[in-house]
Design a protein around this nucleic acid. Structure first.
Length: 930
DNA sequence: GCGATCACG
DNA sequence: GACGTACGTGATCGCA
């Protein structure tokens, strides 16, 4: 650490760190480290404060000497004077305690002294250094708002409350105590202090103390002449408690001659070591301040950017291509590069219907271009003067695409995209089949599922400490938002070229990690090849009978109106049937029915299980609400919304599959969600009748039977289960028979139902609470069932324990095909969080392996169908089910091929020890085919 | 923008 | 002994 003499030009900063920690803890919102839940709110506040003081204070305020001062322990010489000193302090809160050592670590990371000394409080050290510096004519700033330090204030020594950003000088002290700083200890001695347990004189507060001191000068003088005090009460108090007041003065007087271990000169401010500081901040996972610190260091040129692997972003180098010659030049350079970042800009978020507006290409970091192709009025902003608008000078779309096509289809040039299924579809609609490809979103997902999201902005911030321009910034937001074709070209170029740039950089950053993390195969055989398959399914869409939906909608609306009348009658007045809040108030408030559970927000819960319970007791209104809710759900989410989703050009509904949404590796379906079309109730199933085949065609539905239980049997290696599947037994009946020791023949359906619930429960990471809830039985009974199950199938318990142990050690679990799901809460101190992670650890390998298998089937499917010269088109995936559309005459052959591909899907990567069974049927509607 | 609810596997 | 609980999703509505 450097040393420098303290002179009149010096400015010493003393941070009252111990007091700061408590204040930050209470004043700042709680913050925990994302990866393990470690509480770090006070540490974060401390780091921000230090950084601000050290780096952002420019000019005369900048410190020349600097130190953070801590309390060493709770004991000090004051305890010898007065054993009760600070005796009323509570232990620091549980989630503050681990932060004390971290704050000391932070002080060191910032390259400042972390001072503490046995037997003295931080305040005494501060007093000593402050007085020493003052004696040399230096200025002193004490960073604290603690009133105990106010006695130190002089015209050289000030205090600074960083949270309120307020200087505390002699005037401010006078305002608080009614005396000048040198008399503060006298006021405190008289008034006492409940926080520090300083007794003072009973009945005398700050105001009275100030008045008395005005007349008598000091405590000593006052006590000497106590007999002269006119008010009898005060006189008596002061005479009686004279000794106590003298002790109090000793307690509040800071010791300014501590034999300090570090000399004042050695507190000279030192530049932090960039690597040490950034490493610490990154370890704490403070994203914002890490970025700020990094940027400052970069600006000051103290970080070697290339060794950090981070080449700064510089939009200056982005090029807007508006003439053909330049485009040809970039295409040639792209061939040369061999790998390019690629991104498309469109005029809507729906890649099925949008128009291509522009293309961006990145060749290397900071070397990127944007090719506008469909911009309107690019030289005016927002088209306010449409009549004057000149068409922008941009390359004709057909010409550009024609020139780009060979590049985009060139097998020797890798095209890297982020969420590339979108761009793939846009290009496909323009007659270009982009290949070969990589997708940074999917690479991130293969590497880090469960650790963080996989959106580009988040990845860029996390790995490059760079925030790409938000879309909102170029297009605006809300009602005044414009489509990308109206964004002026300069802004469009900055935004679009940056996206391609970031994408290429992400690829460079991630690619080596695929091997290191052993997920190359997952990415290359399960995720990447699925892109064109899903793109094809989304483009194909499924035919939906609008009239059928429309008729159902009217029918539902009528019946809902009837139910509304009945409900108002039963409730004795009108209310909003769609408001759970109002329903709760009526049922449990006005009608006084016995309320069940409450929701998190304190409202009465009115979910189906609650209403069913009330209905079963013979109450009318709950049943009406249940019936209405079902119809309302079916109508708003399905019969109405699905009509709007029909693409007018194709007459079909085109969903969009999300490939990196579900943590376990499952797909999800949005806009609209076609994976949750009703089937469980009679009424709901009718909606599936609206999903139909084109004339002359049929729909085929093929689904895996019990795939997750089969995988459990295989993964946990349970002979009894495996044999049951091999023999084609009813697995739930078999389980019941084993558990309850009854023959399968003539089994009570209730018994089988229990076993079925347990089988599902096992897959979910069973708990007595959950099982009891599911079956509507007592928790103790559920507990007995689980016990019986584990006695019959000890291998399952063993599998569960081993899986949990693995997850605790490695913080991830794997599917049978090697897909990883990271579970960072496995060792959380929070019991509920940990239990949740444990159940995920049980479930994810099973659910994820099933997802992997159907993905393999889907990837193999197009070729298998083509080979058999079948015209079947794969349309939908619903986790364990695939829907196809095929000319009627080919239905049987298609079923045969589909079944074979699905049943053999794990091969050759994995030979399951149980057979996979596939049920398949052909029909005119999805309702019948399922 | 969030919680409650409910549709699916 | 209390806590908070079945796994994975997405859409709609009311409400602040």
């Amino acid at each position: 650490m450097p040393s420098a003499p303290v002179t009149e030009d010096s400015h010493l900063y003393l941070i009252d760190a111990s007091a700061y920690i408590f204040r930050a803890y209470h004043a700042l919102p709680p913050l925990t480290r994302a990866s393990d839940g470690l509480p770090v709110g006070a540490v974060s506040g401390f780091c921000n404060m230090l950084w601000k003081l050290l780096e952002e204070l420019k000019g005369g305020e900048r410190p020349t000497h600097f130190a953070c001062v801590f309390d060493k322990s709770s004991y000090s010489f004051r305890n010898d004077l007065y054993p009760e000193y600070k005796a009323n302090r509570d232990e620091p809160p549980e989630d503050l305690r681990p932060q004390f050592p971290l704050v000391r670590e932070a002080a060191v990371a910032f390259h400042t002294h972390a001072l503490e000394q046995e037997g003295y409080e931080a305040d005494d050290l501060i007093a000593t250094y402050a007085r020493q510096a003052e004696a040399k004519g230096a200025r002193v700033t004490i960073v604290s708002s603690d009133k105990d330090l106010m006695q130190l204030v002089t015209d050289k020594i000030h205090m600074l409350d960083t949270m309120k950003n307020k200087q505390i000088d002699a005037d401010a002290v006078f305002e608080k105590f009614g005396v000048t700083p040198d008399k503060v200890i006298d006021v405190q001695a008289l008034a006492g202090d409940s926080v520090d347990n300083i007794p003072g004189a009973p009945g005398i507060g700050v105001k009275t103390a100030a008045t008395l001191l005005e007349e008598y000068g000091t405590v000593e003088e006052l006590l000497e002449r106590a007999e002269e005090i006119k008010q009898p009460k005060r006189r008596q108090t002061l005479i009686e408690h004279a000794e106590q007041v003298r002790t109090s003065k000793l307690l509040v007087t800071l010791k300014d001659d501590v034999p300090v271990e570090v000399a004042l000169e050695d507190l000279a401010v030192a530049d932090p070591d960039p690597k040490t500081l950034i490493d610490f901040l990154e370890k704490m996972e403070f994203r914002t301040i890490t970025r700020r610190v990094r940027e400052t260091f970069e600006a000051e040129g103290v970080i070697d950017e290339t060794t950090a692997g981070d080449i700064g972003f510089d939009a200056e180098n982005y090029v807007c291509i508006r003439d053909f010659k330049t485009l040809e030049d970039w295409i040639a350079r792209a061939h040369e590069a061999g790998v390019i970042g690629l991104d498309t800009e469109t005029n809507s978020l729906d890649c099925q219907t949008c128009d291509l507006v522009g293309i961006s290409i990145a060749l290397s970091p900071n070397e990127a271009c944007y090719i506008p192709l469909g911009h309107i009025d690019p030289d005016h902003s927002g088209g306010s003067d449409m009549f004057d608008a000149d068409p922008p000078r941009q390359i004709r779309k057909e010409d550009a695409l024609k020139a780009l096509k060979p590049l985009l289809e060139d097998p020797s040039v890798l095209k890297v995209g982020q969420n590339f299924k979108y761009d793939y579809t846009v290009f496909a609609r323009n007659g270009i089949h982009v290949t070969p490809i990589d997708d940074t979103m999917l690479i991130s997902f293969a590497l880090h599922a469960g650790m963080h999201g996989h959106g580009m902005d988040e990845l860029s911030e996390r790995y490059f400490h760079h925030s790409p321009i938000p879309f909102k910034e170029v297009a605006g937001t809300g009602k005044s938002q414009i489509t990308f074709d109206r964004v002026p070209l300069d802004k469009a170029t900055e935004y679009a070229a940056e996206d391609a740039d970031v994408t290429l950089r992400l690829w460079q950053h991630f690619k080596p990690w695929l091997h290191r993390e052993k997920v190359t195969t997952v990415y290359e055989t399960l995720d990447r090849p699925l892109i064109p398959v899903l793109a094809g399914m989304e483009r194909a869409g499924i035919k939906v009978d609008r009239d059928h939906l429309s008729r159902m909608s009217s029918d539902f609306a009528q019946r809902m109106a009837g139910l509304e009348d009945a409900a108002y009658k039963a409730a004795g007045g009108e209310f909003n049937m769609g408001s759970p809040k109002q329903i709760g108030d009526i049922l449990f408030g006005e009608m006084g029915l016995p309320g069940g559970k409450k929701t998190k927000s304190g409202q009465w819960s009115t979910d189906a299980s609650q209403l069913e319970y009330l209905a079963a007791q013979g109450h009318e209104l709950p049943q009406i609400i249940l019936d209405w809710r079902m119809l309302s759900k079916l109508r708003s989410t399905y019969t109405e919304a699905l009509q709007d989703a029909i693409n007018p050009e194709t007459g079909r509904v085109h969903t969009s599959y999300s490939m990196a949404g579900a943590q376990t590796g499952r797909l999800s379906s949005t806009d609209p969600n076609l994976q949750n079309i009703p089937v469980r109730t009679e009424e709901g199933r009718k909606i599936r009748e609206a999903f139909i085949a084109e004339d002359g065609n049929v729909l085929i539905s093929a689904d895996y039977s019990q795939i997750e239980l089969r995988l459990l049997a295989h993964i946990a290696d349970i002979d009894a289960l495996k044999n049951a599947f091999k023999e084609g037994l009813d697995i739930h009946a078999m389980t019941a028979s084993e558990m309850f020791d009854t023959p399968i023949e003539g089994m009570d359906p209730m018994v089988r139902r229990k076993a079925k619930a347990i089988n599902f429960g096992i897959i979910y990471g069973i708990s007595a609470f959950g099982l009891a809830n599911q079956l509507g039985i007592e928790r103790s009974e559920a507990s007995d069932y689980i016990k019986a199950y584990f006695e019959k199938f000890p291998g399952i318990r063993k599998y569960m324990d081993e899986t949990k142990d693995f997850a605790k050690d490695n913080l991830f679990v794997k599917t049978a095909f090697g897909r990883k799901l990271h579970l960072k809460e496995m060792n959380s101190k929070n019991g509920a969080q940990r239990a949740f992670a444990e159940r995920q650890a049980i479930n994810a390998p099973i659910q994820g392996s099933a997802a992997d298998i159907i993905k393999r089937a889907m990837i193999a499917m197009p070729e298998a169908l083509a080979k058999k010269k079948l015209d079947a088109k794969m349309l939908l995936q619903v986790h364990d089910e695939l829907i196809f559309e095929v000319p009627e005459a080919q239905a049987e052959d298609t079923i045969e091929t589909v079944r074979k591909v699905m049943e053999k899907a794990p091969l050759p990567a994995l030979q399951l020890s149980v057979p996979l069974d596939v049920d398949a049927r052909a029909a005119k509607t999805w309702a019948e085919a399922h």
